[in-house]
Design a protein around this nucleic acid. Structure first.
Lengths: 262, 262
DNA sequence: AAACCGGTTTCACTATGTGGAACTTCCACA
DNA sequence: TGTGGAAGTTCCACATAGTGAAACCGGTTT
């Protein structure tokens, strides 16, 4: 995943962030040597980067186990980011209302680096614990929210986003090529809603509606997720109008504020 | 607040983070010139830093309003940090149980840079949502959780933490000097619990218990907060044993995992 | 005791980031 | 329409700050 992204050969800061990303990606405390193996930097350089990040609180070093993990300082910074750059605070009342009405899991997501970043979530009454919480990321090409957002992105942004997809076949229904996905994106554009037909996880389906800027670009997406055991795609399509109107409400509220359109 | 902290004169990465902190601290989109006024760097330098951070997704630039805000990439990183470096995931079931039993707001916090970082919260009625409350920071010297943690910190860590306090008199009851606080810390050490006697906000009181490592150092704290309108300090003290046992349970669970003691 | 393997330190080298100053918009006010 | 000023952007000679090969350390294994 890192070798596939020949990031801009920028400066020290970029390198530092790559390291942070790496540590975050691994999702567990890592030893120095593991990082070394995964990073393109020579030992001494990596060592210094890690030291610096640790002393700045961006990484946390567990002396006993000799491992590094992302540091709490990030949580602090993220709080500010979440409040200012995510739709969550603005969308909150609308998401609450929708969630209460449909009684299924509701997700609010935005695009970040070609991936779907969940910025808020309301669990159904009975929380079937899938992966996902605020801050969690998911793939763009095989989730409802992902496809809804991709469908309404500007030409160039879409292009770079598509180039960042993994095209991994999570299930039999997963799109595994740009072409096959693009065909569906056209449909989504005309319909105004996207469906996840068990493309990411077997047994899990969802309807998603994009949240659009005045210019018609996606600034986020909203979805209702359920399992095939409980509802069918047809059931979900009943919810589409409701979902869309909520999405419009959120867009309206966001317009008076600030919006990072894609 | 920044002038008071002549951070380690470290490298570029430190500078970049200072800028991020600055933007985050201001809690609203800021113009370049505002940052310039608040930062010690010359125009060109700051400009480059901001550009780099923006291109890396750590800052978000709103072209229309010409303002900068923390970027979503932080949220993504923070998710990993929260899961790996905070007590929240481990403590969750215990916090849930406590919250259900006492029916008041419960906070789980850790120390970060001399300040209290809330990593989880259960509201009396509402359910949790991640970064809205989790990720918030508060002062160490005048909150229940802050005092509980300070009381059980290692000598040197305590020293640096104390030097980072603002000693601002939020209310009549706020400690405004190291000496006066230290006196109370000794009491807290012997009692095992800390009280916030309207030291941070008038009308708000709480009991807090430290979460201790095997070595007896604080790795976090747990509190039950309420208002003087609903309960008295005496009422809260009834909850102390309950709170402490929950704290011990969390400590036990954390021991099998990883712990960043202070 | 010798080889090995993570982790840490050294140091000469130069790529990288620095910042004073000049330039370019874009307003506000005359 | 012109002029002054403030905000944002670019330039470029300079040296600081980061680089990385190699040596070093202190365990553990053979």
């Amino acid at each position: 995943m890192n070798s596939a992204a020949p990031r801009s050969g920028e400066g020290t800061i970029a390198k530092a962030l790559e390291v942070l990303d790496l540590v975050a990606q691994l999702e567990r405390p890592v030893r120095f040597s593991e990082l070394l193996a995964l990073s393109p930097h020579p030992k001494a350089t990596l060592y210094r980067l890690v030291q610096t990040l640790t002393s700045l609180g961006m990484l946390r070093y567990d002396a006993e186990r000799q491992t590094y993990a992302p540091g709490l300082r990030l949580v602090r910074l993220a709080h500010a980011a979440w409040r200012q750059s995510s739709l969550a605070p603005i969308a909150r009342p609308f998401v609450d209302a929708l969630s209460a009405q449909v009684g299924e899991t509701v997700h609010l997501a935005q695009m970040d680096g070609g991936q779907v970043l969940y910025v808020d979530k309301r669990n159904a009454a009975e929380p079937l614990e899938m992966f996902s919480q605020a801050g969690k990321v998911g793939p763009g090409y095989c989730t409802g929210v992902g496809k809804a957002m991709l469908a309404f992105m500007a030409e160039d942004a879409l292009d770079t986003a598509l180039s960042q997809q993994a095209w991994f076949a999570h299930t039999d229904h997963t799109h595994t090529s740009r072409e096959s996905l693009c065909a569906e994106l056209a449909e989504i554009r005309s319909e105004g809603v996207a469906y996840d037909r068990e493309e990411h996880e077997p047994g899990i389906i969802c309807v998603a509606a994009p949240i659009l800027s005045d210019a018609g670009r996606s600034i986020g997406a909203l979805s209702v997720t359920t399992s095939t055991a409980r509802k069918s795609l047809a059931d979900l399509s009943q919810l589409a109008p409701h979902l869309q109107s909520t999405a419009r409400d959120i867009a309206g509220a966001a317009a008076n504020w600030q919006f990072p359109s894609q």
